[in-house]
Design a protein around this nucleic acid. Structure first.
Length: 274
DNA sequence: TGTCCATGATCAA
DNA sequence: TGATCCTGGACAT
């Protein structure tokens, strides 16, 4: 579940149902028990998402949550087992349960500042400045595919948005950042803002243009556990929805990268370097 | 029942 | 670069 849109969506729901109200905190699993006891009974004052990080402030205490790859935060009555609930937060008529997070801990204000200062601009935040990311990208010999996944360059983008935004603008994922044109970065950024806002609203990642939607093409809707209509993510071996070429997959920095070798053809800019 | 894999990230070597 | 952490779903046995 967890690219940045998921965390902003969670933050909104927490804000609606818990902020400004006294809360109960428990840790059925026990691994957050000491901290939960400190928080128990306090009013939730502020909820904030930055990239894939979530911050909940209760008086002078701030909880930092990062879902990692396996984490989930669910609302209402849960279906999972009790002994995997790291943190249960309750208010009158509301309940949230956190399972399998990579991080769930109390941070001091300076630790919060340190963490947030290391994050690149988040396309879902109004205070984001894409020029800060561009200053890193335009000087880098790393590929744009790798740079988009680096949370200190851009925060909130994950493996799906990375693959999809590059496909949508026909950009070769292996193109070095320093060879990207300013205009291309502008387009990538503004598209991330648009795509991720939709993601927050609908709770899944949809990236196909209307003419490539299942109904328009007479193809069956996508069957994939993560949901959402996409062009390349986890579609390796299948035909490109735009050109029919076979979608490819390769491990880059330990993650599966998906792309269309024809739509995202290696540009002449890069050709002499290969 | 067991193994592998995942929308992520850190740490050791 | 590889091992590791966390949970749950898909798939094989």
């Amino acid at each position: 579940m967890p690219e940045g849109h998921t965390l902003h969506r969670i933050a909104k729901r927490l804000d609606t149902h818990f902020r400004g109200r006294p809360t109960r905190s428990t840790s059925p699993q026990g691994r957050f028990a000491i901290e939960a006891a400190v928080l128990d009974g306090l009013v939730l004052d502020e909820v904030e998402a930055h990239g894939k990080h979530l911050f909940l402030t209760f008086a002078e205490h701030t909880v930092h949550v990062h879902l990692g790859l396996a984490g989930t935060l669910t609302f209402g009555v849960s279906s999972g087992s009790e002994n995997t609930i790291r943190w249960r937060l309750e208010a009158e008529g509301a309940r949230a349960e956190l399972r399998g997070p990579a991080a769930c801990r109390l941070l001091t204000p300076s630790e919060v500042d340190d963490l947030q200062s290391r994050l690149g601009p988040d396309p879902l935040r109004s205070d984001a400045n894409p020029a800060v990311a561009w200053d890193r990208i335009r000087l880098s010999r790393r590929s744009i595919g790798a740079l988009l996944m680096d949370q200190t360059v851009v925060s909130g983008v994950g493996n799906i948005y990375r693959a999809e935004v590059l496909f949508r603008h026909r950009i070769d994922p292996f193109l070095e950042g320093r060879l990207l044109k300013p205009r291309e970065w502008q387009v990538i950024w503004s598209d991330l803002v648009a795509l991720m806002r939709v993601g927050v609203e609908v709770g899944r990642i949809d990236t196909v243009y209307p003419e490539h939607e299942p109904e328009a093409m007479g193809r069956p809707p996508r069957q994939d556990p993560h949901g959402g209509e996409v062009y390349v993510y986890r579609r390796s071996g299948q035909p490109c929805l735009r050109c029919g070429s076979t979608i490819r997959k390769r491990v880059l920095d330990g993650r599966n990268l998906f792309w269309c070798p024809r739509c995202q053809r290696r540009s002449r800019r890069q050709a002499h370097l290969v």
